Amino acid sequence: MADDDFRTVTIIQADGLYPDEELEKTLFAPRPGQKYKLNYVQSNLWPTGVPERRPWSDIPEELRNQVDGIEVLKMPFTEQDLSLFPRLKVIVRMGVGYDRLDRVALAKRDVTVCNVPDYGTEEIADHAIALTLSLRRGILIHHERQRATPPAGWMIINTPLMARLRGATFGIFGLGRIGTAAALRAKALGFNVLFYDPYLPNGVDKSLGVERTKDVKELFRRANVLSLHCPCTRETRDLIGYDLLSLLPPGAVLVNTSRGEVLDLDGVEECLKNGLLAGAGLDVLPEEPIPEDRVHPLIEAYRRKEQWLEGRLVITCHTAFYSPESFVDIRLKSAETMRDVLIDGGRSNVITPDME
C-alpha cells in the first residue's frame, strides 16, 4: 500500500496547554499492524494563563474539516460548535465533569464522549481539606487582621470559625473517587465522617469505616463541615440552596471543590449573613470566569473586603485539581483514553447518553 493510501487520523488539543507535542505524538503513533498517518495539533484556543478563550471558529476551516478527535480541558462545546467539525468521532473532556459538553447534540451525531475520572484525585481532596482548615482554624481571619493597619493584637480571636476538629462531623455530598479521598483525610484528622450518595451500593460505609445516611437532610443537619464532591447533572444542578444550607448546624463551614453549578450563591450569601454559616471555601462558581457585567453580590462583597465577610470566605480559581504532577496525569490519561477509543476501538471512560 502506498503512503498516499494511508488514512489520516487528525486529533486536536483545543486549549493549547503544553510546551511540546512529543507525548501525544508518541502515544498516538501507529503500532505494529496499524496503517494510518497522524496529524496532531494544539489549537491554542485557551492556553494556560490567558483569561479569555477564543471561539472554535478560530481554528482554520481546512483543519476543522479533518478533525476526528478533540481533547478539551476548559472550553465548552455546543451544538453550534459541533457543526464546525463534520468528521468528529470522539471528544475527550480532560477532567471528571462533562456538563460543558452538549451531550444531546453529540449523541445525535454519534460522537463518543469520554472523560478522565482518575486524575487530580489527591490534589482536589487535599484542596478540600486545606479550605476546611484555613477556615476552621481561623487562619484566614488571623491573616487578614495581622496585615491590617494597625495590626490586631497578639491574641486569640473569638469567632464561630474556630472549633476542634476531633469529634466534629465532616459531611460529604457525593462519595466518588475524590469524595472517598477526602473522607480518608478527614478521618485522619479525627473527624467523624458522614456521607450521602444514593448511587453507591450497600457496604461502602463498612469498607471505609465511615457513616452513611440515605436522607440528604440528615447530612445537612449533622455536618459541622460540609464538603461537596458531586458532578453537575440534571439532578444536582442548583440543588443546594438556602433550603438545604439552612439545615446546617449554626457555625458550620461549607466547602465546594466539585462544580459551581450545584450550589446557589444566593443561599450561601444569606446563610453567611445570618450566621448559619461561619465560613465558606469555594474553588468553583456557577459562572467561570466571573462575568464582570454580572458579578454576584457575595463576590462583590468579598472583593471589597467588607467587614462582615472578614476571614469567612475564600475563593480559588477552579484550581483544586492542579499540581505539576496532576497536569502531567491529565495529559497522559487523556491521550491514553483518546487512543483507546478513537484508534484502537476500545471503550475507556465512555460516557453514554443515558448517564447523568
Rank of each mutant, 00 (worst) to 15 (best):
I172N: 01
G153M: 13
S246T: 13
T257K: 02
K217V: 09
D4I: 14
P60Y: 04
L272S: 04
L239H: 13
K108F: 05
R222W: 10
P86T: 07
R100Q: 14
E261H: 01
A152P: 05
T257V: 07
L88C: 10
F6S: 02
V50A: 00
G209C: 10
D329E: 15
K74H: 10
H142T: 09
E306R: 12
F6E: 08
L208H: 08
V72R: 06
G203C: 09
L82Q: 12
E235R: 13
N44Y: 15
N192V: 15
A2W: 13
G311S: 00
D329W: 13
A183F: 14
I343V: 10
K206H: 15
K273I: 12
G190E: 15
D58C: 01
E270L: 13
E356S: 11
K273S: 07
N158H: 12
L228P: 02
T169H: 01
L263W: 03
R145H: 12
M75R: 10
A14Q: 05
E52T: 13
L17D: 07
L106V: 06
C232N: 14
S258G: 10
A278T: 06
D354A: 05
P297H: 05
R7W: 11
I91K: 03
L285K: 09
K187I: 14
G95R: 04
V268W: 02
L247F: 03
F327L: 15
L282V: 08
G176D: 04
V255W: 03
R221V: 05
Y36R: 04
D126W: 13
G179A: 11
P297L: 02
V262Q: 01
W308L: 01
R137M: 10
Y119A: 03
R136C: 04
Y18K: 04
L131E: 06
V113D: 04
